[in-house]
């Protein structure tokens, strides 16, 4: 059985026929060729696969592509505007919020979800919001600083 899906990813509409068992992360990576979204643990724990679905952070390894039919998806490729990094991307750069970078796309999109509902989070709130995103390099300290940097920049811009 193949099912038609229409998914808007980073503002572009894609129509594809997919097997119902195709996971959203594989749809994004293998069908659309957007490999910024990573597969880490593949068991909805590590958060490497986090994307925004209708504005909310979700673990795309635990969502079927058919569930995203009609949805707006944002991946890491969709954050920069006109060659300008998003403040979160800039924050990870400036504050050394990554080392190997594998967790970074998911980390940034989970942080994006947080800053939408809480533009001025405390360090503790940042840590709680990123509880579902594992980083094995940084020790998290600079990730918290990166999110704080982005929050400040976004508040100034607003």
């Amino acid at each position: 059985m193949k099912v038609p899906v229409t998914v808007t990813v980073n503002g572009q509409v894609y129509q594809r026929e997919v097997e119902p068992r195709l996971l959203l992360v594989h749809f994004i990576r293998e069908v659309l060729g957007l490999t910024g979204t990573h597969v880490g643990c593949d068991t909805s724990q590590c958060g490497a696969c986090v994307v925004l679905m209708d504005g909310k952070a979700v673990k795309s390894c635990t969502v079927f592509a058919v569930q995203a039919d009609g949805a707006q998806i944002t991946t890491i490729e969709g954050l920069a505007r006109n060659g300008q990094l998003h403040p979160l991307q800039e924050g990870f750069w400036e504050m050394h919020g990554l080392q190997c970078g594998f967790c970074t796309p998911g980390m940034i999109l989970a942080a994006y979800d947080l800053l939408q509902r809480n533009p001025n989070p405390t360090d503790e709130e940042i840590r709680h919001a990123l509880e579902g995103n594992y980083c094995r390099c940084t020790g998290y300290h600079n990730i918290v600083r990166a999110v704080r940097y982005a929050a400040e920049k976004l508040r100034v811009q607003a």
Partner: peptide, 9 residues
């Protein structure tokens, strides 16, 4: 429950 992205779904 779980973590924030899990709670979103």
């Amino acid at each position: 429950i779980g973590d924030p992205p899990v709670r979103n779904m």
